[in-house]
Design a protein around this nucleic acid. Sequence first.
DNA 1: TTAACAATGTTATTTATTTCACAAATAATA
DNA 2: TATTATTTGTGAAATAAATAACATTGTTAA
Lengths: 215, 215
Amino acid sequence: MPEKPIQMNPHPSEKTIARLSLYRRCLRELAQGGSHHTYSHELAKLAGVTAAQVRRDLMVVGYDGSPRRGYEVKGLYQSIGQFLDGAIEQKAVLIGVGNLGRAILAYFHGKTPNLEIVAAFDNDPQKIDRVVMSCRCFSMTCIEEIIARERVQTAIITVPADEAQRVTDVVIQAGVQGILNFAPVRLQVPAGVFVEQMDMAVALQKVAYFSRQRQ
Amino acid sequence: MPEKPIQMNPHPSEKTIARLSLYRRCLRELAQGGSHHTYSHELAKLAGVTAAQVRRDLMVVGYDGSPRRGYEVKGLYQSIGQFLDGAIEQKAVLIGVGNLGRAILAYFHGKTPNLEIVAAFDNDPQKIDRVVMSCRCFSMTCIEEIIARERVQTAIITVPADEAQRVTDVVIQAGVQGILNFAPVRLQVPAGVFVEQMDMAVALQKVAYFSRQRQ
DNA sequence: TTAACAATGTTATTTATTTCACAAATAATA
DNA sequence: TATTATTTGTGAAATAAATAACATTGTTAA
C-alpha cells in the first residue's frame, strides 16, 4: 500500500459521519455474532452501501485494515467509537415527554453509554419530578439551570411545532451546540449551532410518492 | 422567458421530492397567514434553502409563476399537492403500536387527507380491536388481509428491531410498495420496493458529533 | 407609451459525492 | 521459498447536486 501521509481529512461530510455510525452498529452485530474480522464488502452489504464507499469513509477514521485479512472487528469498532464519540462523555437532554419523547427515552436508555440523556423536561405536573422511562423528568423552568450545570451539549426537541422555536432559544441560550428536532418547523439558530431535522411528515410523503411511482 | 419544451423531468430526485413536500408546508403556513402570493426567495427563507434551489425544484411541478408577481400561493400549493399526491387517494398502515407508533398516529391523524393511515397492528391483546389515537388497531394476523382488501401501498414500521424484517416480508407479500422504517435495521426488500430509513440513533450520533466539533 | 425594474425559468458552471481502477501488501498454498 | 489470490488505501474519473448567471417577461411608474 502507498505510504500514508500524516494528514487527516479536516471536514468529514455529514453523510460520512452518518454512515460511520451505521458501520459501528453493523460491527457491533458482527461481534455479537462471533466474528473476529470482516471485509469492506461484508460491512458494505450489511450497511447497504458499496465496498468502495466503506473504504473511503474509513479513511477519516485512520484505522488500517490488513490486505487479505480485512478489518479486525473489535479494533475497528473501537476506532470508529473513538472518532465519533471523542474523549469526554457527552450529555443530552430531551424536551417534551409526549409519546414521541417517551419512545426516544426508552429507545436510548442504556444503549449509548458515551451519550447519555441526563434529563427530560415537560410542563405537565403529572410528569414533573417523576422518573419516565428511567429518566428523571423536570419542569421546563429548570431547563437553563440543568443544561448549564451538567454541561449538556445536545438537545432533543419533541414538543409541538408551536413551542419548538421558544424551546430552541432557551436551550441555545443555556449553551447547547446541537439540536435533534422532531417538530415540523425549520428552527432559526445562530451560526455554529448544528440542527438535524427529523421530519416524519416529509419522510412519509416521500415514501408515498415513490411507492406510487413504482407500481 | 424561453419557450417551454413539453417534456418533464422523468425522475425527480429524492431530495427534490422531500423539498417539495417542505415547500408545500411553508405555502400552507403562508396561506394561513393571509398571503396571496410569494417569491422564490421568500419560500427559500422559510424552507431554509436558496432561491435558486426553489426555482429549480419547482421546474418538475410545471407550475408557472409570474415575473415580478412571483407565485400565487394557493395555486402553487395545489400544484405541488397534485404532483406529490397523484390523482387517487393513498392509504397507509402502521405496524407496532408502542410509544412511537402512537406518536405517529397522533401526529398524522387528519393532517394528510390524501394519505390516510387506515389501520394499525399490534400483538398486544390490550390494544387489539381498540381505537388508538383515532385509529383502529388490529391483530398482526390480519395484516395481509387488510392490506390486500384496502389496497394499501405504504407501511410504517414501528416494531422492535428483531421483528422488523419479519413484518417487512409480510407487508410486501401483501402488496405494499413503500416502507417508512423506524427500526434500526437495514431491511432486505425486493427491487421495486422503496424504503425510507428513519434512523434516530444515527441522527443523534450525528448531532453529537457536530455539536462537539463546533464548540 | 415607453423605460426601468425585479422576478422567473433554464442553461452553464461549480462543488460535492460516489464509483472505478489499480499499485501495494499480505496471508495461504504449493 | 516463490507464487497466487485477494483485499486494502487512495488517486483519478464519473456522477449527482447545488449555485450562479442571465435572457426573458410581466408590472409599475414616469
